[in-house]
Design a protein around this nucleic acid. Structure first.
Lengths: 242, 242
DNA sequence: CATGCTAATATGTCCGGACAAATTCTCAAG
DNA sequence: CTTGAGAATTTGTCCGGACATATTAGCATG
């Protein structure tokens, strides 16, 4: 498959850096050397190096050279549990969630891990946009609902509130615990486009898992909130027993 | 002050786009037209347009032209309060915070807003790196401590725990409430370098304000956690009174 | 009016070159 | 051994040019 020379060069250099040639901390050959070695123009080399810089693999400084700053992004995640008292309902009432039609999906791999589902379990996925009272989009939502509650669609929009409340009322089940995970992600191009933002923007991802009394997952929601449109505020009160 | 031509052009074009000339959805003049109008080379124009593309203001496609996609990034923040029960102490014990020397600062402007301080109030700022038990950096911390507690440095490292606990014990004050704000930011180059990561990476920013019983701010902490090294997990339990 | 083809247009890629600016290295002097 | 000046090195900026590729406009035909 055809590919521009500068991209091909970028890919070769990226692979070499990943292989430790040169290692993090060392310098790459100069632009002139790379041009001679790979028989391309200095412009092409500079374009290739710009790609690597965008990936965060190298750092360039005039007079100093091109330094390798990373072989590849790190992949280990640290987790810490913090309990809280919900204001979720108030949040749900204060904002408006516009949901699209249901799409049946089966949870596997990353999706299963993300929403805490058993592998192979079926879900109904609803993509939506959440807006504040003024109609300004504040985030994207993907709602995963147990197919057992497929009729819940009829209740959407009946009144402001949380979907899990509707499920509780319509099906006589109870959400006993909500597990919430907050982390930072980078908006993918399609996600960014839906929010009218440039891709690559930092966003809060808030995953909520709605569990019945014995830990059965009834519903899950994956929310993406762009950095400047949403922040979480929590008050942590001292327990009086202390 | 000297500035490269391509940056000056980018700034002019950015200001025009912000002023609606041309409006979002319209196209910019072609590269050739811009080169002629501004008496620069097409290369300089392309560099300037690349800057605007990086800002997410324009979208470029060969054969089609340069389209304006945004006038400027949105700047309104939505805030929602959610209360919680702390695991903060456990978190503090499970990780290790390496703090540097104190640096006196006066809170103004953005800093005052960020940490919730009165403008003009003096603080001691300690920059630090937090690591997990294995020594892997999981975030950067900036600790702001009331100068009244300057002797607290002597207590650093005495035993694992939270700095506010040390302040409580050493000075006979009590933290009554911790206000925590979580949002997504993009790591600045220096911050990223300290964590061995490329700049531009998404990160969780968690600001905690430690308040005495009548709302007096005793301490504040600004924590930056890179996206893949940290996530917040919370359990929200149903209140039994419901 | 719809369709298809071709030309025109606009950005993308690549080249060579020159000079500016920041950093590093070398060497002489103290 | 230290210091400072100057040269060398390396990236950054800017130019002009040519060709490739994708998109759009225009026009002829049915």
């Amino acid at each position: 498959m055809h590919r521009p020379r500068y991209r091909a060069l970028a890919e070769r250099l990226r692979a070499e850096i990943a292989a430790g040639r040169p290692p993090v901390g060392a310098t790459l050959p100069t632009e002139g050397e790379l041009a001679a070695t790979h028989r391309v123009s200095r412009h092409t080399v500079r374009e290739a190096l710009r790609c690597l810089a965008e990936l965060g693999l190298i750092s360039r400084r005039q007079g100093s050279g091109t330094h390798v700053t990373a072989a590849r992004p790190q992949a280990s995640t640290y987790r810490q549990s913090l309990a809280s008292l919900a204001d979720l309902l108030q949040y749900a009432k204060a904002t408006r969630l516009h949901l699209g039609p249901a799409e049946p999906v089966v949870a596997r791999g990353r999706l299963a891990r993300l929403i805490g589902s058993a592998v192979g379990r079926a879900w109904l996925r609803y993509a939506g946009l959440r807006c504040d009272a003024a109609g300004t989009p504040i985030g994207l939502t993907e709602l995963y609902v147990d197919p057992e509650f497929r009729d819940i669609e009829r209740h959407f929009g009946e009144r402001p509130g949380a979907v899990y409340e509707l499920i509780e009322e319509a099906f006589g089940v109870a959400v006993d615990e909500i597990r919430q995970e907050i982390d930072a992600v980078t908006l993918a191009p399609r996600q960014a486009a839906k929010l009218g933002l440039p891709a690559g923007r930092a966003a809060l991802r808030i995953v909520r898992r709605y569990l019945a009394p014995h830990g059965r997952l009834l519903q899950a929601a994956v929310n993406l909130h762009p950095a400047e449109r949403f922040s979480y505020v929590m008050r942590i009160r001292r327990e009086t027993s202390r």
